[in-house]
């Protein structure tokens, strides 16, 4: 119980810090929110009136408290670019990123973890070397290079993959919006053509993001497993007469599962942050793209809103990892 209050208060503190940082972003940026809203040519009187309406004439502390109460109520103001409330925009853009990130993480984990274990077991042998080279490539080749090559080969030259975007134009707006995840929504609507189309569009960005994340997950799994396999309890397990598979999966692996949770949580958070580059190359209307476009147009409300969301995701996933720690590792209970 004491533990829980500790965790909750540290989460609240982190969120407060996050609010302060995002508030500061809104102030330090060399953008006058009043001018951004009313335009360069507005008369002096209008500018002054709007400045007062926005509360910008008040002391900074009051402005911050006002900002706090706004974000607690889920109000991030309007986007100048889209003229929609920021929350509405995020609700539309974020599912695209969520769909991409979740699919990529699942694939990366399902392939990366066994691969890392395998490499550790075969340390120094050919299998290990191959896995390590594959991972090194995945981690060091910039995502946009892979993305462009992929588009060039599979879309432009071979024509077997769909082009950029989330769906073909003919399917645009065909599937009723439920979750915002096109694959899920099309299943709900029972529209299998739309589902196939959405899935086909996901393949390239997902595979590239999955490869990148897998490289990291494999490397970390390998390192954790190498450490675990050196443990005396592995000798004990072998001395008991267990098979190699049982020693690896029932004894060594459970001890690294805890550390892997953190790796997976941070990888997922990184993916959700919006794989900006991937989203740009594939014209994927996700959070990363929304954030980038808003930033380039000095549209501060969406920037602050999206930044806050990303921060909350990080805090949330860290919290989740902390809780899973306690479930998986009896030593920290």
């Amino acid at each position: 119980m004491k533990n829980l209050t500790g965790i909750l208060s540290s989460v609240l503190l982190t969120l407060l810090g996050l609010a302060i940082v995002t508030f500061m972003i809104g102030r330090v940026m060399p953008v006058d929110p009043v001018i951004a809203a009313v335009g360069d040519n507005a008369p002096e009187a209008v500018i002054n009136r709007v400045r007062m309406e926005m509360g910008l004439d008040q002391p900074l502390v009051f402005q911050f408290l006002h900002y706090l109460s706004q974000i607690v109520h889920g109000d991030f103001g309007k986007s100048i670019l889209t003229r929609n409330p920021v929350t509405e925009d995020i609700a539309r853009y974020f599912p695209a990123t969520l769909e991409l990130a979740t699919a990529a993480l699942l694939i990366a984990a399902v392939i990366g973890i066994p691969l890392g274990v395998w490499a550790a077991v075969r340390q120094g042998r050919l299998t290990d070397q191959i896995i390590r080279v594959v991972c090194l490539a995945g981690h060091s080749v910039p995502v946009f290079v892979l993305a462009l090559i992929s588009l060039l080969v599979f879309y432009a030259a071979l024509g077997i993959a769909p082009g950029p975007g989330r769906q073909d134009i003919i399917f645009e707006g065909m599937v009723p919006h439920v979750t915002g995840l096109l694959t899920v929504d099309s299943i709900i609507a029972g529209d299998w053509d739309a589902f196939r189309d959405a899935l086909a569009h996901m393949v390239q960005p997902v595979v590239i993001l999955a490869y990148f994340s897998m490289a990291y997950i494999t490397r970390m799994t390998r390192a954790f497993m190498l450490d675990a396999l050196k443990g005396e309890f592995v000798i004990t397990a072998r001395a008991k007469g267990l098979s190699a598979a049982a020693v690896i999966w029932k004894h060594a692996f459970p001890t690294v599962a805890v550390q892997l949770v953190t790796v997976l949580a941070l990888t997922y958070a990184g993916l959700l942050e919006g794989a900006v580059v991937t989203e740009t190359v594939f014209a994927w209307p996700g959070l990363g793209q929304y954030l980038t476009v808003s930033l380039m147009n000095a549209d501060m409300n969406p920037v602050v809103g999206a930044t806050l969301l990303i921060g909350v995701i990080y805090v949330g996933l860290n919290l989740l990892a902390d809780i899973l720690y306690k479930v998986l590792d009896p030593r920290v209970r």
């Binding site: 004990t236 397990a237 007469g241 267990l242 098979s243 459970p254 001890t255 599962a257 009896p330």
Partner: peptide
């Protein structure tokens, strides 16, 4: 594996390290 455990047991030095920390 027909010898290990079954016909010959092996006790290691320090139970702090030789028992699996995450299993009862």
């Amino acid at each position: 594996r027909q010898i290990r455990g079954k016909r010959a047991g092996f006790i290691l030095q320090d139970p702090k390290y030789s028992l699996n920390p995450v299993k009862t």
